[in-house]
Write a protein that binds this DNA or RNA. Structure first.
Length: 446
RNA sequence: GAGGAUGUAGCUCAGCUGGUUAGAGCGCCAGAUUGUGGCUCUGGAGGUCGCGGGUUCGAUUCCCGUCAUUCUCCCCA
């Protein structure tokens, strides 16, 4: 006998869980479509050549690689000591996708002739990372991405802010949306005389919420920034957005970044958000492919890290031979949104219930045969119906209805078949009535 | 990659400084109620104490190893 198990960091979803997850996905999907995004899907596996080198050194390590079929050892040169990475590249040509952005870039290039720019796509699919699982972190998890590719306009950024606002409003989950611009951070790096260390600075600043100002200072010291630069960065972190122009006055990039954020705000001037939108100079985001505006969403009532993020990237398709295309996108962290909503009790009561509204409980096979056309009649009236498949004791069948939270049970035996009147039991009140099918239907469809 | 914690019934866990038939709650099954769920009562089933080795007269308990799970850091969603 094999002890049943699933791989580390993966999950089965129970009906209760999946009904709640789908509630979130449905709202996100509907909102994407309301903003004119169209769906695509890409394969779970991509060629490793598509994925490798796109997520940094550590990213390559975190890719799940798929062993070639057939006699994969035939190709391998084991005559001398080899780096395992080299061997891996000889025996694996495919890998599971790590995110939805790179496959999308690949998709755009491959389908360039059938795509009309600007192209607005959304994609809700699982991704895989060979990471060590932790609380709220899995090896298989879903991403919900929407990107606009082929437009430089900051109206896209503004609309994405409205999209975030709409989704979290519908989920009744209060959030703070932060916006900043990579060029502002670049301006900071220039201003403190460390342009070449931009990514060190952004990864350090990114931890501000987690480790505090002293933690950031320490992080910067470990990354060997000059003391003077560190002092000025600490000074920067205290600034409000309004104070940035003075601080970044000598950086063309910095001024450009401020202008971009301001313009996004201008686009939103006459469509106020229901949630908080703040320009936050301290917002960094680790990913290095962002080049313009960057966003992050946090739940305001719970400390749980970000539940969404995104930004503008230039030239994402460049590595696939299609340079000069700019895009901007956002992502929803479905797993964390779920956790927050669960903790705050935001899932509507009715989605946690079973789908069936009526159960037919039959005494014997004759009653079951009698029930079949009645069940169909109810179903055609739009009512979800189950017929209990075994002619066992009514006690047993009522117990089943009780556990599945099915609100109505039709008890069917010789008496009902003779009279043509159905015995309908309301499982909440325990009361029973004798009804014709028509009366039952009209009662349930009121 | 580094460090910690935990593995006992289907689930959540108790089990004293090592001691003879390893317990509880919940769940499950049956009955009280042969055409009626929840509540109650009665009875019942269910355990290689993760696995391997060691110490001992004796190990669920102590030691070592191993596997699994989980948490923190790194990184990320």
């Amino acid at each position: 006998m094999v002890k049943p198990s699933i791989p580390k960091g993966t999950r089965d979803f129970t009906p209760e869980t999946l009904l709640k997850r789908n509630y979130i996905f449905d709202i996100i999907r509907q909102t994407f479509e309301r903003f004119g995004f169209v769906p695509i899907e890409t394969p779970a596996m991509e060629n490793l050549s598509t994925l490798m080198g796109k997520y940094g050194e550590e990213g390559d390590q975190l890719l799940f690689k798929i062993l070639n079929s057939g006699d994969f050892l035939k190709q391998v040169d084991l005559s001398q000591d080899q780096d395992y990475r080299k061997v891996a590249s000889q025996i694996c040509e495919k890998g599971l996708r790590y995110d939805l952005t790179i496959p999308f870039a690949r998709y755009v290039v491959m389908h360039r002739h059938e795509i009309t720019l600007p192209f607005k796509r959304y994609q809700i699919q699982p991704v895989w990372r060979a990471d060590r699982p932790q609380k709220g972190r899995y090896r298989e998890f879903y991403q919900c991405d929407a990107d606009v590719i082929g437009s430089d306009s900051l109206l896209c950024e503004a609309e994405l802010m409205l999209l975030y606002d709409e989704v979290f409003t519908r989920l009744q989950l209060p959030v703070r949306i932060k916006i900043n611009n990579r060029k502002i951070l670049q301006g900071l790096a220039e201003t403190v005389g460390c342009s070449s260390m931009l990514s060190d600075i952004t990864t350090a600043i990114d931890k501000l919420d987690k480790v505090g100002t002293e933690g950031v200072r320490q992080e910067l010291q470990e990354r060997f920034l000059p003391q003077e630069a560190i002092d000025r960065i600490m000074q920067y972190l205290q600034l409000s957005f309004a104070e940035l122009p003075a601080f970044l006055a000598n950086s063309a990039a910095g001024i450009q970044g401020i202008a971009e954020v301001t313009q996004v705000m201008d686009f939103l001037a006459s469509t106020p958000l229901k949630n908080e939108l703040v320009a936050d100079p301290a917002l960094a985001r680790g990913l290095n492919y962002y080049t313009g505006c960057i966003f992050e969403v946090q739940a305001t009532q719970l400390q749980i890290g970000s539940i969404g993020g995104g930004g503008r990237y230039d030239n994402l398709t460049g590595t696939f031979g299609m340079p000069g295309i700019s895009g901007v996108g956002i992502s929803f962290g479905a797993e964390r949104i779920y956790d927050v909503m669960e903790q705050m009790g935001l899932f509507p009561e009715k989605i946690t219930k079973t789908s069936a509204v009526v159960l037919f409980a039959c005494f014997d096979v004759a009653a079951q045969r009698f029930a079949m056309p009645l069940a169909q009649q109810l179903r055609h009236a739009g009512i979800s119906v189950e017929v209990y498949p075994e002619p066992v004791k009514i006690k047993k069948q009522l117990e089943y209805a009780d556990r599945r939270a099915i609100p109505h049970v039709v008890i069917l035996g010789s008496e009902e078949m003779a009279s043509g009147l159905l015995t309908v039991k309301n499982m909440q009140t325990g009361q029973q009535q004798q009804l014709t099918v028509e009366a039952l239907i009209s009662q349930l469809t009121e």
